[in-house]
């Protein structure tokens, strides 16, 4: 069984977000980059668990430049067998999806995993796009996956509940909380990661469908209005008559 886990680079969750070049670019100064948490904690770890139970191979796939190699090595340290990086810019989801689909057409996989979204652009796009480009079933925001031969049972998050889904290999999913528990790489994994293959794949010809024009920060709150703990009626009054929220 061949599993491909697509991972993205993302700024650490504690990052203070700032922009440069007249608010047209994310300011990466002082930012620590990590594997996007959904890709790492849920997609990658579930893939490794399935490999441990059923045998097979887990490849991590990333689109981006050489600056992404440290997070790819971390995924290898956590336990992926090998990696491929498609050497292409990452400015548009459809462009990225076309890179991944082109790779998967020449390197077919039984399972293709994504995280449910990245914590920087919050797109929730690439997984679904890849499924469409390859005409494969897509299970978005999957919180559970069990395999029985080539049949898969999944849980998918929906408003106020879950859906139980059955499909068969090959298919594409985006992973949400519940799928697995995060793993910390151990020393052996870190050592082994250094010699695991990381193949650099040339970019596939495609154009961008979207372009980021500018960034803005949310307006700062005008300040908190404090109400005395002994005067809770006043809070209710403000919420009703000033904020019109209840």
């Amino acid at each position: 069984m061949k599993i491909v886990v697509c991972i993205s680079k993302a700024p650490d969750t504690t990052s203070k977000i700032a922009f440069k070049e007249n608010n047209t670019q994310f300011d990466e100064a002082g930012i620590q980059f990590i594997i996007n948490p959904y890709d790492e904690w849920y997609a990658l770890v579930r893939a490794l668990e399935l490999k441990e139970a059923n045998g097979g191979n887990v490849t991590v796939l990333n689109v981006g430049g050489a600056e992404n190699d440290p997070i790819i090595r971390k995924a290898l340290a956590i336990g992926a067998d090998d990696a491929a990086r498609i050497d292409a810019p990452t400015n548009d989801a459809l462009f990225i999806a076309k890179q991944i689909a082109a790779y998967l057409k020449s390197n077919p996989a039984d399972l293709v995993f994504f995280g449910k979204e990245t914590i920087d652009y919050n797109g929730s796009q690439v997984g679904g796009m890849v499924s469409a480009l390859l005409d494969l079933p897509y299970v978005s925001l999957a919180s559970k996956l069990e395999l029985n031969g080539t049949t898969a049972m999944l849980e998918r998050e929906i408003e106020g509940g879950i859906e139980l889904i059955e499909t068969s290999l090959p298919f594409v999913l985006s992973a949400a909380k519940g799928m697995a528990e995060a793993r910390i790489p151990n020393m052996r994994g870190i050592m082994a990661a250094r010699t695991k293959p990381l193949n650099i794949v040339p970019a596939f010809e495609a154009s961008n469908a979207t372009e980021i024009k500018s960034f803005t920060l949310p307006p700062a709150k005008t300040g908190c209005k404090y109400v005395d703990a002994d005067n809770v009626d006043e809070l209710v009054n403000l919420l009703r008559n000033e904020a019109k929220a209840i």
């Binding site: 999806a97 929730s124 796009q125 796009m129």
Partner: peptide, 23 residues
């Protein structure tokens, strides 16, 4: 931009080869 929209919109965008903005 709910559970259904997140599932369907990217498929639409790829099939139609058009730009998508989510959220």
């Amino acid at each position: 931009h709910d559970y259904s929209g997140k599932a369907v919109a990217p498929i639409l965008a790829a099939k139609l080869d058009v730009g998508l903005v989510t959220g």
